[in-house]
Amino acid sequence: MTNQSYYQARELEEEWNEKMLAVAQESPVESGGFHILFDRSPDIFTIPKLTSYRYRCGGLFRKDEMLGYAIATFQKRYIYHQRLANVMYVGNMHVKEEGRGAGFFYRMSNFFFGGLDPDVEYFYAYIMENNEPALNLVNRRHPRFPDAPYAKKVGLISMVNILLTIPVRMSRKYTVRTATYDDIDPIVELLQEEYSIRFLAPEMNRDIFLRNLKQRPNFGIENYAVALTGNQIVGVCSCWDMTSFKKNRVLKYGVAFGMIRLLYNAGAPLLGIPSLPSPGEAFRDITIAEYAVKDREPAIMEALLRYAYNEFKRQEYHSIILGASVDDPLLSFTKNFYTKHVRSHVVLGSMQWEKLVEKENIPLIYADAVQI
Rank of each mutant, 00 (worst) to 15 (best):
E15V: 13
E15P: 06
N17A: 03
M20C: 06
V23Y: 02
A24K: 02
V29Q: 09
L37M: 09
P42N: 13
F45P: 00
T46S: 07
T51Y: 08
T51K: 12
G58R: 06
L60T: 07
L60S: 03
R62P: 04
K63P: 05
D64T: 14
E65C: 10
Q82T: 11
Q82E: 15
L84A: 05
N86L: 13
M88L: 12
M93K: 11
K96R: 15
E98I: 13
G101H: 11
F112Y: 13
F113H: 09
D117N: 14
A125L: 14
I127H: 08
I127V: 10
M128I: 12
N130D: 15
A134V: 04
L137Y: 04
N139D: 10
H142P: 06
H142Q: 11
H142S: 11
P143A: 06
R144L: 15
P146T: 10
S158D: 06
M159Y: 15
V160Q: 14
N161R: 04
N161D: 01
L163R: 10
L164I: 06
V168I: 12
T175C: 11
V176P: 00
V176A: 04
Y181G: 07
P186E: 09
E189T: 14
L191S: 05
E193V: 05
I197V: 12
F199Y: 15
L200M: 14
N205S: 05
D207V: 09
D207A: 14
I208P: 06
L210P: 02
R211Q: 11
N212S: 14
L213T: 09
Q215H: 08
R216F: 15
P217S: 12
F219N: 09
G220N: 15
Y224R: 01
Y224V: 01
Y224T: 02
A225S: 15
L228P: 02
G230D: 02
W240Q: 09
T243H: 00
K247P: 00
N248V: 00
Y253N: 00
L271F: 12
P277A: 01
G280D: 03
E281Q: 00
E281H: 00
F283S: 00
T287L: 11
Y291L: 02
Y291M: 04
A292P: 07
V293S: 04
D295S: 08
M301H: 08
E302V: 07
L304R: 03
Y307E: 05
A308T: 14
R314Q: 11
Y317F: 09
H318Q: 00
S319M: 01
I320R: 10
D327G: 01
F337S: 03
F337H: 04
T339D: 06
R343P: 02
R343D: 08
H345T: 07
G349H: 12
E358K: 15
K359F: 12
K359W: 14
I365S: 07
Y366V: 08
Y366C: 08
A367I: 07
D368S: 10
